[in-house]
Design a protein around this nucleic acid. Sequence first.
DNA 1: TACAGATTGCTATGATCAATAGCATTTGCT
DNA 2: AGCAAATGCTATTGATCATAGCAATCTGTA
Lengths: 148, 148
Amino acid sequence: MQDPLSSLPGYLLRRASSSLIAELNQRLAGIDVNHTDASLLILIDANPGLTQSDAARMLGIQRANMVGLVARVEGRGLLVRERVDGRSQALLLSTDGKAVLARVLAVIHAFEASLLERVPADLRPHVVPILRHLWGEGRENAGGSSFA
Amino acid sequence: MQDPLSSLPGYLLRRASSSLIAELNQRLAGIDVNHTDASLLILIDANPGLTQSDAARMLGIQRANMVGLVARVEGRGLLVRERVDGRSQALLLSTDGKAVLARVLAVIHAFEASLLERVPADLRPHVVPILRHLWGEGRENAGGSSFA
DNA sequence: TACAGATTGCTATGATCAATAGCATTTGCT
DNA sequence: AGCAAATGCTATTGATCATAGCAATCTGTA
């Protein structure tokens, strides 16, 4: 059976992404958190007090879809909202949130390590640079701050 | 603003994938076909007469979800079903399907080329091998992801 | 041949995720 | 004061994905 698709980078990228997201969600299931929740926790931890809109922009999530995400994570007691404006609200990790984050980071770091181990050692240093270049789009005019 | 996520291969993979799928769908919009339809056309062309279940397996799509996909593409007159069994049916490209496939291939090849151009020339040969390793090993557990 | 088990295509259903339009309130700027 | 933009939100839609179950059919084996 011919597989003409597995030579296409775009197709490979899609299949790899969906299968790895599923795997990561399985690994996170024990903490009762999915990969989106996890990314939000990590982002808030690195930028305490950032706005809900800021988080949406950085995560590539529409403001509309951010509402449910924040509400769910807040409902688990992992984050706290504080009004800083009449319209904006700052997001902060709760004590529980910080504890869960520690477990999330352990899972994610193990996951990322296992990802890299699937790539031959000589190609391993190129994984992140290649993915950054492939993503690239939509971040070119993303303004001045960090790309680190 | 710190971005602690963009150093994580898994996160980069997800973002790159979703942004590139969106771009490919835009490029295909003129042909009135999406990336899933396109992959089905390519697969049938390379394996004329393959079974609907075979196609589902190769594309990583559940049999249940294949029904709507095949029905939609058949509804556009791009493929034909032929019973080979009392239960199986062979999928074949129609004349229109072959014509559309030619346009699809042109779009996809242009897209894949533009993908690779985003990667520095010295890293370019490593793109497909890396993606294959990232995907391949992820499938060791025989596919499905199930939450608890 | 007869039967158990697997396969195929299908329906129905639910969960997740993303995208759009529109809204009230608030802020910033002129 | 007045106006444009931003913020959080509701509501809705569509696409994707996974599960359970079903009738019909095929396959392998006793």
